[in-house]
């Protein structure tokens, strides 16, 4: 009798141990958790999470769109523009505050797979009458498949080609307008080093007033994803750091005549898309902890580093590509 009890008693922890090992190895479904109290009172953030757009301020997080598979949202006055990406093309759509579609700003669907287009990385200027974006829409004419840089005039609905890519090298990405000078656009320009055949990115500056393109960073920096401070005097950007998944989050002074100076590394980690707050010295960024999706965090630039780092969206559900933007209060 005693033996039977002993065997029965030992089977239970054995089964529990087996089950624990089974469930520990299974990937877990993550859901986003919002802690908006860490957002600066000056800021409103538009965010894409699982294809739904949310508006976040210090007091609340409200969902604007439902099940429309939207990414890369930007504010356009009281409306929101966002990219809808499908298997073979993407489009730029405009929504009102209730999430109702107002109109299509760019349609990538030509109904023929060979002439369909991608549109990526929309950015609005300070006067809210132009949207910069990158696209492969002219590939049939240029015979270059990579994304080129365009500016869409919202009054006329016409797009102008601003910069061409280095052919077959990755193309152009992530344009941003200087909030203090609407003629200035910065963008990432991908190319191969002709000697090592290693790809790298340079941040370039386009001046619409002069038509000049200036290179701000070179191969040694391998820099990308720049963003302006509200006064246009500083930029944040990322710098690739060897082969690892860690990148450097950098800050620099910007002058549209003399380029970048006083470049400092604030932190090293699995970062993406840093953006300035409307409150001085505060920034937002995406960061992954380990092999997971991304969270939205905020921090304060202090001396040569970041402190007071806090989480706004946790749950590792955000995409590493631009899934949020900070609405600027400095529209001119």
């Amino acid at each position: 009798m005693k033996k039977r009890v002993l065997i029965l008693f030992s089977i239970i922890p054995f089964i529990v141990g087996f089950s624990v090992a089974y469930f520990q190895g299974k990937p877990k479904n993550q859901t986003a958790v919002f802690d908006t109290s860490n957002i600066q009172p000056t800021d409103t953030i538009i965010l894409s999470n699982n294809g739904n757009i949310y508006k976040l301020n210090k007091n609340r997080a409200s969902q604007i769109t439902h099940n429309q598979n939207l990414i890369e949202p930007i504010a356009l006055g009281n409306a929101i523009a966002a990219i809808k990406k499908t298997t073979n093309y993407s489009s730029l759509l405009l929504f009102d505050q209730s999430g109702n579609k107002i109109k299509t700003l760019f349609n990538g669907n030509s109904n023929n797979i060979d002439t369909m287009s991608w549109i990526t990385d929309p950015a609005v200027n300070s006067t809210q009458d132009r949207i910069a974006y990158v696209s492969d829409k002219d590939k049939v004419f240029t015979n270059v498949p990579d994304n080129a840089l365009y500016v869409l005039n919202l009054s006329t609905g016409k797009s102008t080609n601003i910069a061409k890519p280095d052919p077959y090298s990755g193309g152009i990405a992530h344009p941003i307008f200087d909030p203090s000078d609407k003629n200035i656009i910065l963008y990432d320009y991908y190319q191969y080093d002709p000697k090592t055949l290693m790809p790298y990115s340079a941040i370039k500056q386009f001046d619409n007033a002069s038509g000049l393109i200036t290179t701000l960073t070179y191969e040694n920096r391998n820099a990308y994803q720049a963003s302006f401070s509200p006064d246009g005097k500083k930029i944040l950007f990322l710098e690739r750091n060897g082969d690892s998944n860690n990148v450097a989050l950098c800050i620099a002074d910007f002058n549209n005549n003399s380029g970048l100076s006083n470049i400092k590394t604030l932190a090293i980690g699995d970062f993406a898309y840093p953006e300035f707050s409307n409150t001085k010295w505060h920034i937002y960024f995406l960061q992954a902890q380990g092999n997971k999706g991304y969270n939205l965090l905020t921090g304060t630039v202090y001396k040569n580093g970041l402190n007071n780092i806090r989480t706004i969206v946790s749950g590792n559900t955000l995409l590493g590509n631009s899934s949020y933007s900070v609405i600027r209060n400095t529209a001119r």
């Binding site: 994304n147 990755g170 193309g171 990115s201 690739r240 998944n245 699995d270 092999n291 997971k292």
Partner: peptide, 18 residues
């Protein structure tokens, strides 16, 4: 890749393939 919960990768340049 799915068994390890996906993978975090540093994409060194955009990849467009028609």
């Amino acid at each position: 890749i799915n068994a390890i919960g996906g993978i975090n990768l540093q994409v060194v340049h955009p990849v467009l393939d028609n």
